[in-house]
Structure formats: C-alpha cells, structure tokens
C-alpha cells in the first residue's frame, strides 16, 4: 500500500481547534484540568490525553505582526526515532499506511521513545504507557479519515496518499516541510513563513544515541535491555542530536 500521510496547510488554519477536540471525542480521551497562563494555547504542551494541538505563535515577519497557528502532533516519521529505540517489540509499530501506532499492552514504560523523538511528541499516561497520535488507525484501516482531518473546517488538515499530497503541496507556492527529512515525514507542513517562525527545526534529526541503540545495542537482543547495557545507553541519550547524513536519508523508511 502506498504510504499515507497528513498534510498540514498552516495558511488555512484559523485555530478553531476542532482537531484537538475531535481527536478526544473519537479516542475518548479525558480533558486535562487547565489554567490560563496568559495565552489561548491550552494545554501548553501535548499531554497523555492530547494527541494533537494548535500552537499559537505571535511573531513578526519582515516587520509585520503575524499570529501563526501550527498543528502539533506525531509526525509519523519515515525514519522514526521512537521505533528505533523501542526495546519492546510491537509496543510501537508501523501500519500498512505508514502510520506509527502503539500497543499499550506491550509498552514496558521505559520512556526511551520520548528521548528518541526529535519533536517532543510521546507522552506517558498514568499507567506509564505510551500515548500519542496514532493517526486514528482504526478509522484509517476502515477507510475513514482520521478524526481531526474529518473535523477540520478549512482544509488545513488533509490525509491521503503521501505522494499525491506532496505533488499538490508543491503547486501551492508554499514551503513544503518534511518531504525528505527523516526519510520523509508522515505529517508534513505547508508553511507561509520560514520553519523557524513556527519554531520548527530546519533539519530535524534523531538524537545520536538512537543510532547507538539501533546499530550497536539492539542487535545484542532484548535480554540485554534489562542489564547494564540499558544503563549505558541512557548515558548517550543526553548526548544530543546528530544530523542525519544524506546516506541515511536515502535509505528510506524503516
């Protein structure tokens, strides 16, 4: 099956946040108790009960005031740090459409995916199990659009064949973000402004430690996880990101 993806056209977003609520409604996620901290942006971060959210960014671009809205979520990376680092087979998995789902029963609560993610997406629930946007894999598997996409009134969120979305996006005259990075993001942006205006990394990458994990530690087998190797790996988590080289990117998805 051809890879599917989200395309997020920020120029169309009015920050109505139907995406936030439609997700909670479909996935039956509870509300978080919040306070106003001087912003409309609530909750301020993704939470175990909030799989996608709108960031409200007040900025100036070329001297002109802008209020930018960005849908923040799991970007379902082609080269996914979370998948690479996950020591429990099947806790995170890639669907036929290319989305990254999770199985809480298999999640062992190690939190490594948190460190493996370049976009600060995975969250852990009260039972210490992974949660994040799974692309409404139940809906998608049944031929429906993800709940957020279905609800989006302005066409900001689209979901479909990744290559078609890219082709369409390229005709928009806007900056396409995520076509190639991390072997191609499964949720891409069409930006009116520069990535940094949206607080997006120019070239997102997986933390260095992840390569260590995948290429050195993981082959030793899951048994080793519980031993000192895991501890050693943790040491590297803090090393920080390493830029993907072209060669890595060219290898394609996992």
């Amino acid at each position: 099956m051809a890879r599917k993806a989200f395309m997020i056209d920020t120029s169309r977003c009015t920050a109505c946040r139907s995406c936030q609520v439609a997700c909670k409604q479909w996935n039956k996620l509870p509300a978080d108790s919040e306070i106003n901290r001087g912003s409309y942006e609530n909750p301020p971060q993704l939470t175990p009960h909030l799989y996608n959210k709108i960031e409200f960014i007040e900025t100036e671009v070329n001297g002109e005031f802008k209020w930018l809205f960005l849908n923040k979520r799991c970007l379902h990376c082609g080269e996914a740090g979370c998948l690479k680092v996950c020591p429990s087979t099947g806790a995170l998995f890639r669907t036929e459409e290319g989305l990254i789902g999770f199985d809480k029963d298999k999640c062992i609560g190690c939190n490594y995916c948190v460190n493996g993610c370049p976009f600060d997406v995975p969250r852990y629930d009260a039972d210490n199990k992974i949660t994040k946007c799974h692309g409404c894999l139940d809906r998608v598997g049944n031929g429906l659009q993800p709940a957020c996409v279905k609800a989006c009134p302005t066409g900001t969120l689209q979901f479909g064949a990744r290559d078609k979305l890219i082709a369409q996006g390229k005709t928009s005259g806007r900056k396409l973000y995520g076509e190639k990075a991390l072997s191609g993001l499964g949720a891409m942006y069409l930006l009116d402004n520069q990535p940094q205006d949206y607080k997006l990394a120019d070239n997102p990458s997986i933390p260095t430690s992840i390569f260590l994990w995948k290429d050195v530690i993981k082959p030793l087998g899951i048994l080793g996880f519980w031993g000192s190797v895991g501890v050693a790996m943790l040491h590297y988590v803090t090393v920080g990101p390493k830029q993907l080289d072209d060669d890595t990117e060219a290898k394609g998805g996992e």
């Binding site: 920050a15 109505c16 946040r17 936030q20 609520v21 909670k24 409604q25 509870p30 509300a31 978080d32 108790s33 919040e34 306070i35 106003n36 001087g38 409309y40 609530n42 909750p43």
Partner: peptide, 25 residues
C-alpha cells in the same frame, strides 16, 4: 471565543472546551 458559547453554560460544563479556555482573561 471559539471554545465557548454565550455565557458558557453549554461550554464551561464541557470539559474538553474548558480545557482549552479555562478561565477569565
């Protein structure tokens, strides 16, 4: 605001909406 409606009786009592705009500003 988008997230509330009128005096809020039908939105302040909706936890998903209150989460997004939780208090007077």
């Amino acid at each position: 605001v988008t997230e509330h409606w009128q005096t809020g009786v039908m939105t302040r009592n909706i936890p998903w909406l209150l989460e997004m705009q939780p208090s007077m500003f």
